[in-house]
Amino acid sequence: MLSEAEVLQRVRSLKDPEIGRTFGELDMVKAVQTTGSTVHVTIELPTPAYPGKHRISDAITAAVKEGQPDVTAVEVKFTSVVQGKMSGGAIGLRAKNVIAVGSGKGGVGKSTVATSLAYGLKTLGCKVGLMDADVYGPSVPHMVGSVDRPTAIKVRTESGEEIERIQPVDVDGLKVISMGYFLKPDQAVIWRGPLLHRAITQFLKDTDWGDLDYLIIDLPPGTGDISLTLSQLLGLAGAVVVCSPQQVALLDAIKAISMFNQVKIPILGIVENMSGEIFGRGGAKAMAEELNVPFLGELPIDSGIRIRGDAGRISTLFSEENPSREPLVQICEQVAIQVAKQLLVAPKMPTLEIL
């Protein structure tokens, strides 16, 4: 029978299937115990939304049982602690990871994907906030089915100063803030850049988000200056680019990727929305491969998504059986693991050429 030290050595030498470094390097092995002929291993994941946990269980079971007929069972238990940059600390934002969701043009379902991503990560066990930064066309309140207005309360800081903080709307455990909560249904926002900058800054600094694993920010379509504002205020975990499969949408998505690169926001990957017969399929995946950025998945064109969005029931995409549930969960898992990779995969040092 293997000793616990030998089991630990075997498990620590295995490579994580998603991140590509060993469990020992990533400090993911938290406990090893043998009880009779059973070996118990506890692995700490960098996110509850880790995709395909069974691959880790299978690899550990095979490694521990190899050449050990006395080992009859291997039980792998998973815990998770979300890793994050905590880059919003300078402005009082206690979110481990801030993720921007953008697109090169309107009409590709960016807000639907952003809202679904927030609900999906929450469903998978994460603490999530959703900030609607699409000031000119705030649609998030409608999609989450919330008509409540954010409230303001006075809180006292550690120094004893009394300040006013905005309380986000709580929708089934998801914290939400949007300009839509402050406007009449037919009211248009006619603002120049400085006012936009001020509103976005208030949403980030003056809102009592609490402790979050992920704050999802739904950006306006196109390549406007809100992304620049975010890059100046925060070190974002990254950006998700949403596009539909047809060529005209892909051309604009390339511009969005270029914008994020220019303002130093990492690209987490591309989501192909409304994939199917009407708009085609596979265009975003091909573009991702060409640009060497991750492809996060495709979301089929499905009337159920539109119906739930119109009815303010986007959350039910994860609680009810529907054709979109599985691809949405996969997209959420891929976004979460890409965020973890940004932190845990050490960048390669550039090779210096000696002249």
Rank of each mutant, 00 (worst) to 15 (best):
Q83A: 13
G104S: 09
E6R: 00
T115W: 11
I56K: 01
V113K: 13
K105I: 06
G84L: 11
I60A: 07
I60C: 02
V74L: 03
E75H: 09
E66T: 02
A95L: 06
A95N: 04
E4C: 00
K30M: 08
A114C: 15
A62T: 05
S13K: 11
L26A: 06
G106Y: 07
I43E: 03
I19G: 08
K96T: 09
T112C: 14
L93Q: 06
S80E: 13
L45Q: 10
D16E: 04
A90Y: 13
P17V: 09
T35H: 08
V81L: 15
E25W: 02
K77G: 07
V64Y: 04
Q68H: 09
G84R: 12
E4H: 00
L26Y: 05
A59Y: 03
V11T: 03
G88V: 09
F23S: 05
R10D: 00
S57F: 06
R12S: 04
T115I: 13
L45C: 07
G20D: 04
E66A: 06
A31R: 04
G52R: 11
K53F: 01
T22V: 12
A5E: 00
G107N: 14
G89Q: 14
P48K: 02
S87F: 12
S103E: 14
V82M: 07
I99K: 11
K96E: 10
V101F: 14
D16W: 02
V32F: 00
I56R: 03
G24N: 04
G67W: 05
E44V: 08
T61R: 12
L45V: 06
E18H: 09
H54P: 06
N97E: 10
K85C: 15
S103N: 11
V11K: 01
G89H: 09
R12V: 01
S87W: 14
V32C: 00
V11F: 01
P69A: 05
G36A: 04
S103K: 10
Y50G: 03
V29N: 02
A90G: 09
G92N: 08
G102V: 13
R12Q: 07
V81T: 15
D16R: 07
A62S: 06
A5C: 01
Q33T: 03
V7E: 00
T79V: 14
Q68M: 09
S80L: 12
G24T: 03
G104L: 06
S87D: 12
P69N: 08
D70Q: 13
V74D: 02
R10P: 01
G67N: 02
R94D: 15
V11E: 00
K85N: 08
G52S: 12
T115Q: 10
L14V: 04
S87Q: 14
A90S: 15
L26W: 05
G102K: 09
G84I: 13
S13R: 11
G109H: 11
L26C: 08
A100Q: 13
V32E: 00
T79H: 10
K53V: 05
K53P: 06
E18Y: 05
N97T: 14
K77L: 13
I43C: 08
I99M: 12
S103M: 13
P48Q: 03
E66I: 01
G88S: 06
Y50P: 08
Q9H: 03
L14F: 04
T22R: 06
G109A: 14
A49C: 06
T22S: 10
S57E: 13
Q9P: 05
H40E: 06
E6Q: 00
L26F: 04
G88I: 05
D16G: 02
